[in-house]
Design a protein around this nucleic acid. Structure first.
Lengths: 400, 400
DNA sequence: TTTGGTATGTTCGGGACTCGCTCAAACTAA
DNA sequence: TTAGTTTGAGCGAGTCCCGAACATACCAAA
């Protein structure tokens, strides 16, 4: 959360009349996101208010082109005036989305409907201490896509593949990119382009991408796991992304699953990361004598597993290792739904099912339900949509 | 035609004028809980509203005796009309609190100020399949304390030392009390006494007791750990108790910290419970040759540790074992504050500090803060206050 | 003692919402 | 044609918060 300064004001604001309108408008738009094209009457039923209230909220948005009124639908069996579905306009104000990776930056202009209207990728100078150059490259990339906007964008979301301080909108640390460490990227971009800028950790952006445009659409509690060289995650609890103070939560890779176990990159022993990342997989693949073990991925492993029993065993063990952490999350939070991103997601449905089966075996029965493991969409697209989702969540999900 | 939405999202109702009043009244009362005696002007500053708004909210509550207006305080150095502090009235409507244990039931009448006005303890027939007798005993105990109420109570909270289904208000399973398994205690009590009844898991009641009357007062994010024969916990995240669907969350004792480790009571291997309960402590105490090892507690261990190096080492290892799970919570949720209850709490401040030190050693630095381990109050009292807290949270914390 | 400054708490008019009711429009089925 | 159903708009009423103004109460310096 970049633009708002870190307030230590411990106040619990009351609800004012002004904020009620904003909040309700946000909720109606949320409903439109979650339900797709929906008539005013159905929105009224869904939100439990009078139809006239929906009209009052929606009409200005239709008038200024934010919402589109579709053609009257043929009435349902019972007769009656045909409903006119409302949809989010693909040409309404777009959202800027930035993904900061180790060696490059990707920017996009995203419509409210989840379409990528423009895109830009460029190299990012991250070695040495050239923070200014990095900021300039990111800003230039962002400006390139914002120039394609026909209406002034709502804001900009930035997903960073490293540790961030969401309160300050600054980067704490990005592996192998020392130029970015400590960089207050959010405020820098905000003052450069004159728009609100929200900055967050990459897995949390993925979560919001899934929440608004992916398999988490309309779901109030679920988790995202990102696997690969590292292991990270994010949590949606009760309709809100759980960040923790300054965005400290979600460091799932460095929870202990094997006290005093293998040494982790972080210097401690037995982190989940030590048994559920590509590093572990490649070492075990080499031990098992699998071909090209040093560059194996879950996708390759799954292909090998079709004919090589050793690969199939390794695949199953890896699925179980991933399931261990999911089981811990399930026992702790009972999020029930877990969306895979990164390397593990490219193992496809069978691999997700294998993880799910292990996770279910690892938690006891409870009336609250069982864990379900599903695939997230394409990572690159999901990250950009997620960066846009940062802005959507900020604009639409008032805590009131 | 009015199809239910294809999501698990409980149709987000919009905010109406009526609910705003209720919610704001709740927030003002929360502020009074959290701040103690507070003048109208200070409440206005704290909640960010106009003083006249506070007057409008507070005046009816003063008139009907729910709030008390104290004597004018001597004005602060700068002059001005002296403030008249408002306090919750100890004689306002009380709350019924019930704690269901394996062999007995305790009931109490709790004032809004956290005083226990009346109390009742009786044996609970829990063997065999005599659900009716158990319900009768609980109901009779509750009625005994409710009879002491001078005004009609707000409701009744029930804390159960076992697995519960909070949605149904029913008990899923209580160890060694088969008569209670599956019992819909909430509805049964509600129809018997004609008051709303809220039922929840024991650690979650402790959490709410701490939130309203203990070390969690006014803190929006913290966790409670209960240790002893079993290991359980509860989470306050962003001002709301996280229950999970049907109350499935918080099963911290059965998260894995040692994959394929020691066999746990639950049938799986390497649960946190296997290294952080009295069972582990007593076996290790026996191995170390400590006196009366089979009945040792953390409190006894801490006393022994003063002169026996072996006891001191065991004490340190036990503190680290507890810290492992705290570190995992910290990495996952960054709750920052951890309140101890049960056996470990009776190890006193030095033991809490030892756990805290280990927990800090086990998590990396982050601007979001470091874990803090503090002692909860007396368990028996905290559980009853926590049962009352179930009602307070229900009445005062509208999600709007 | 007077006077100006400061803070508290109340009163009152105004504005921003939502609610319930009513009505026209559009479609179905008998 | 007619009755029934559903959608969407219009209007007055009610509820709540805000801001300005005012009375009250205390302090401190002149």
């Amino acid at each position: 959360m970049a633009t708002s300064p870190p307030t230590d004001m411990p106040t619990r604001p009351l609800i004012s009349a002004a904020v009620v309108g904003r909040a309700n408008r946000g909720r109606v738009l949320q409903a439109l996101f979650d339900l797709g094209p929906t008539s005013r009457a159905e929105l009224a039923r869904y939100t439990g208010v009078n139809r006239s209230t929906i009209t009052a909220i929606v009409q200005p948005l239709v008038d200024n082109g934010f919402l589109l009124e579709g053609a009257p639908l043929p009435a349902g069996g019972a007769g009656g005036k045909p409903a006119r579905p409302l949809t989010l306009s693909p040409t309404a104000s777009p959202i800027g989305a930035v993904q900061v990776l180790q060696g490059r930056v990707r920017s996009a202009l995203v419509s409210m409907t989840g379409d990528i209207l423009a895109q830009d990728t460029r190299r990012l100078p991250v070695t040495g201490r050239r923070a200014r150059e990095a900021t300039d490259a990111i800003g230039a990339s962002l400006e390139a896509v914002l120039a394609a906007a026909k209406r002034p964008p709502f804001g900009v979301g930035v997903a960073v593949g490293g540790m961030v301080d969401t309160d300050r909108g600054s980067i704490v640390e990005v592996n192998l990119a020392p130029a970015l460490d400590g960089l207050a990227l959010g405020p820098a971009l905000a003052s450069r382009i004159g728009l609100p800028v929200l900055l967050d950790h990459h897995p949390r952006a993925l979560l919001l991408g899934d929440r608004w445009f992916g398999p988490g659409r309309g779901i109030s509690t679920f988790a995202v796991l990102y696997t690969g060289e590292v292991l990270g995650g994010a949590l949606m609890l009760g309709g809100h992304l759980h960040r923790g103070p300054a965005g400290a939560g979600g460091e799932l890779g460095h929870t202990f699953v094997q006290v005093d176990g293998e040494l982790c990159r972080c210097g401690r022993r037995g982190c989940w990361e030590t048994i559920a990342t590509l590093d572990w997989l490649r070492r075990r693949a080499a031990e098992a004598g699998l071909p090209d073990a040093a560059r194996i991925s879950t996708a390759k492993l799954c292909r090998l597993a079709a004919k090589d029993p050793a690969a199939a065993r390794l695949r199953d063990t890896y699925a179980r290792n991933l399931a261990v952490g999911i089981a811990n999350l399930q026992q702790t939070l009972a999020a029930n739904r877990y969306v895979l991103h990164g390397d593990a997601a490219r193992g496809g449905e069978p691999f997700a099912t294998a993880i799910q089966q292990h996770a279910r075996d690892l938690v006891p029965e409870h009336p609250g339900g069982r864990p379900t493991v599903v695939l997230g969409g394409d990572d690159d697209r999901a990250a950009l949509l997620g960066a846009a989702g940062l802005v959507l969540s900020d604009q639409l999900q008032f805590t009131v």
